[in-house]
Design a protein around this nucleic acid. Structure first.
Lengths: 228, 228
DNA sequence: CGCGGCTTTGATGTTCATCAAGTAAAGTGG
DNA sequence: CCACTTTACTTGATGAACATCAAAGCCGCG
């Protein structure tokens, strides 16, 4: 297979590498390393030096950091097409977050200097990346504030709607994480995650069997989210 | 006075416009409008179309948004040298935040297209801005998570230390905001802001008279912050 | 000088974390 | 593949932290 074709057709290109010339795209291709990662595998560890631009081609990954007192805190979940080295990549020397695969995934890596050079050379590409980073940061900030302004029921509802609409495009999905991890994401205790999800089940808002979730009454769930 | 000199010597230049050529700096100068704003005055309103790059030359401003249920939420306080149009400027069409002067301030405005053009033309400048935006976003995110992981006493302590070390460089300063605004910043009620500050006063950690604060025992205050 | 918002203090109630204890599920080594 | 161990899940009871409500004093401003 023509390797350049591979990159040219990669669904990723349309979003982020649109503005690259063919020559630059060729350079990206020569440098990129694509690799599969198993569920649970760590992709980068917080504190590691940043040497690569990493993006997610397939799967789901979580970005987390260790808060004060050693409590884990999940900052966001990245989808295919997301840069997962995210914010730190251009401003820091080492990763701020630990990134772990939630399901079997595929990531692509490009040497940082290659990207840096292209950012310098290609103003349109540079502007696109600026916009992308700004948006990502905005999203995380807005998401965090939305979450914090809600009570526990509202948070769980928000998370379930998000999984359904943003990550799985279905009312019926398998939670890609444990109750404990959910708790880390929305800042509550595992006990209360369980309690409230059970309530939702009893009230007929969702069906729930272990990690299998089906949202039965989406309208009500959204109302709980918005009123929480 | 030579107007170009004005910009060349502006303390702002060293941080953000370092990489601009003399010609580009000249262009910045021709386009910039510098204006004073009075305490309490709104600089931009959330929802307004973004037409300018705005940075703070002197003073202090707050960036806030209206959360769900109309509760105000202060996202961050900007200092001189900060871009205050911040994150949204390159990714959105309208402002995400309302920006208000906390004290008498001075801002400079540059037409957005001028900056955009320079970003496209000048890769080094572009990289600097990328780094700057990444850092700003990182800071806000880290700050928000740090705040949320603390109890109320820890939050107040954190805020006071921050005012002292980051914004005023002194153990003795005048709070630039009301108790209600403080509550909006660190996500608690005005009543509890008052209660806890009074506690600190009674315990001899700070002296407090209306908005005048003096930190008497910084070490203890930091301990309260870190243990909260 | 009086009105409205800011500030302060106290009393009450709700939400949520913590603790405890037991069950199910999922790895692990023989 | 089965016993064994560990880790995840679940439910209930208790207590602490914090929001809310109420009432009174204060301050700036028209």
């Amino acid at each position: 297979m023509d390797l350049n074709q591979t990159c040219k057709n990669c669904k990723f290109r349309s979003h982020l590498f649109d503005k690259l010339s063919d020559e630059q795209l060729q350079k990206v291709y020569k440098n990129k390393k694509s690799s599969p990662v198993k569920k649970g595998q760590i992709i980068v560890s917080s504190g590691e030096p940043i040497r690569e631009f990493i993006y997610l081609v397939e799967g789901l990954v979580k970005l987390q950091k260790i808060g004060i007192k050693g409590k884990e805190q999940i900052i966001t979940i990245a989808r295919p097409m997301d840069f997962i080295s995210l914010l730190s990549v251009l401003s820091k020397d080492t990763y701020e977050y630990t990134i772990t695969a939630l399901v079997d995934s595929v990531v692509c890596r490009i040497e940082l200097n290659t990207i840096r050079m292209m950012l310098r050379e290609n103003g349109d590409f540079s502007l696109d990346i600026l916009r992308y980073i700004s948006n990502t940061a905005d999203d995380i900030i807005n998401h965090t504030y939305a979450l914090n302004s809600k009570n526990l029921r509202g948070r769980i509802a928000m998370l379930l709607v998000e999984f359904s609409e943003k990550y799985f495009n279905s009312n019926d999905f398998i939670l890609p994480m444990s109750r404990k991890e959910i708790a880390e994401m929305i800042d509550m205790t595992p006990e209360n995650v369980i309690r409230i999800m059970s309530e939702f089940r009893k009230d007929g808002v969702i069906k729930l069997r272990s990690k299998q979730v089906e949202i039965v009454n989406m309208e009500l769930l959204k109302k709980i989210r918005d009123l929480g």
